[in-house]
Design a protein around this nucleic acid. Sequence first.
RNA 1: GGCGACGUAGCCAAGUGGUAAGGCAGAGCUCUGCAAAAGCUCCAUCAUGGGUUCGAUUCCCAUCGUCGCCUCCA
Length: 485
Amino acid sequence: MTLQIFNVLGREKQPFEPLEPGKVNMYVCGPTVYDYSHVGHAKTYVSFDVVVRYLRFSGYDVLYVQNLTDVGHLLDDGEDRILKKARQSASTPMQVVETYAREYFADMDALGVLRPDISPRASGHIPEQISMIEALIEKGKAYAVNGSVYFDVRSYPEYGKLSNRRIEEQQAGSRELVQDEKRHPDDFALWKRAEPEHILQWESPWGMGFPGWHIECSAMARKYLGDTFDIHGGGVDNIFPHNECEIAQSECANEADFARYWMLVGSLMVPDADGIPVKMSKSLGNFVTIKDALQRQQPQVIRTLILTSHYRSPLTFSDDSFDSAKNGWDRLMGAVRLTRESLRFAEGNDQGNGFEPVLAQTRQKFTEAMDDDFNAPGALAALYELTREVNTLLNADVKPGKAILEAIDQTYRELGGQVLGIVPDALPGGANAEREEKLIRLLIAMRAEARKNKEFAQADRLRDELASAGVLLEDRPDGTIWRIE
RNA sequence: GGCGACGUAGCCAAGUGGUAAGGCAGAGCUCUGCAAAAGCUCCAUCAUGGGUUCGAUUCCCAUCGUCGCCUCCA
């Protein structure tokens, strides 16, 4: 089966056909870097991380661009959020931007999110934005007023096609402030005149000012991906007005289609006081930062939690769902650990090679799920089913040979590691702690001796002491294995 | 009010016109010196009411409920 993608533009699953065979140009709206990122951001960027990883796994050459918004994103009161933060923290805007851009990458790195190929910043692309605005004015799609420039939505009949919104004619008069400058309430700013005290401002044909929030994505996408490209991603909450405006600006300025496939990620929800799920957001204050989440759980567990729900669906984030993901992931890792442990002593025979078909089935089920609009929950299910089979195999009397164990390990590494990013290459407490490992093995040997002599009190003491130090033992017919809790 | 999405077991969550993946939790069993881990077994008729159909959880309509967007948000 070929890859199917649910295209928000048209609201249907469509076979994925890139503009250029084998090559995927992709743009995802990045964060505004004015504060720490929270788990809601993690959901979006982990989701697209898996999309990119799977596309590459499938053989596509992916060029992944994700911007950083560092100017032009205003608050309700018209203040730039970066400037506000700078004022509050007694620093300069670019310090704020630099600080939180680094924190963002640090968080994403910790979550195992691969870096985009290009991470362009809005403030670094002012000329590109200005020239796009000029083109829009020339084509009669935008107009300048008092040093600001607005996009004329009535000049673009397709405005609203992504979010299915119609331009409201009667609503005029319902808006305050800027209203008088706009010809139509739905017109949006391409360029804003800056007051003298506004620190972030640039020269333009219309005087000193700064770009509107939406134009950056249009300008940068065109610069790095061309007029028309394959996939545009983001969170659903930006479908209107942001994504809609991007389309309008780009298609008018470029006189070409913008993104061919739109993929929007469902929001992360948090139960409110009454247990009703509400979107996690900065403004509501119901957020958990990625740093806090990482304090509580391993990054792979956070990814697992995110992947238990389809990317388009909302996902409720709670202690229960967190624990559930953690316990499931532990079982997965148990099988991975057992496989790698068994590999240490495996012989080079073909014992257990009858297991091959299970691996083939796993791969098939996995890719079928992922080919169906990146159905990660289905792909995860394939890994869980594999895990049951692997545990059965490794707990049986026959000792599987090296070949099949390596094949199993490889399957986990590729599907669970390379694609989903939940199976680490090196298990915690592995070979890099050689001395510790030796000590643990010594204690295990001492306990084995005690057990042999039926000195169970002594044996239990060793096990309990190790457990209290975070080293958990498991007795198996052929010896004792351990893991770090 | 407009637009969109959704309502599947105790919880989370896939999916299909022919009686429903997976995970967590729970119960029983096996293995074990005891544990731990693992495995096996058990646990839903898919919000409600109509309609289409040989047959619907899956298609259509209505109702109820929830969420998102419409103003800043990934």
